[in-house]
Amino acid sequence: MTRITVTVDGVTYEEEVEPRLLLVHLLRERLGKTGTPIGCDTSNCGACTVMLDGTSVKSCSVLAVQADEGDVLTVEGLAGGGGWHPMQRAFHEEHALQCGYCTPGMIMAAIDLLKDDPDPSDEAIRHGLEGNLCRCTGYCNIVRAVRRGAAEMSGHQEVTAS
């Protein structure tokens, strides 16, 4: 067993974990963070995507011990005092989800995508989300949502900057 300290959605946890425990199982089964689901076992689907120290990772491909001293943000930590994150609103407005199982990972990956490219083309969005699979939407509305989320986020940033 290894003792780790990890912050998840603003709360710091100390946990004794087996070295082989996956981050996603730590989140789901130890910390009750079930907002992050598991869709595969080969890191293809991206449903379990979270932010680890500001970068998106597939939490099924990260060991809990690798997150020691780390700061994890899941979909459950996105909404703030002002309500939903712009990307959450955009997914809702554009009907970018149906069953919603891929949605937490898709939203986290979309936010990560915008860090490098705040105003992506449709093609850049499609390639940027290549590692996140959705079986319901055919992706059209996800692309629209990311575009809308990007516009809202850049608008928001401008307001903050001024």
């Binding site: 789901r28 963070k33 919603g100």
Partner: peptide, 17 residues
């Protein structure tokens, strides 16, 4: 816009697992 979305975009969904 769908009523279902609120729990789905915020991670408060009740999956069996």
């Amino acid at each position: 816009r769908r009523k279902e979305d609120a729990r789905l975009v915020t991670g408060r969904t009740q999956w069996t697992d």
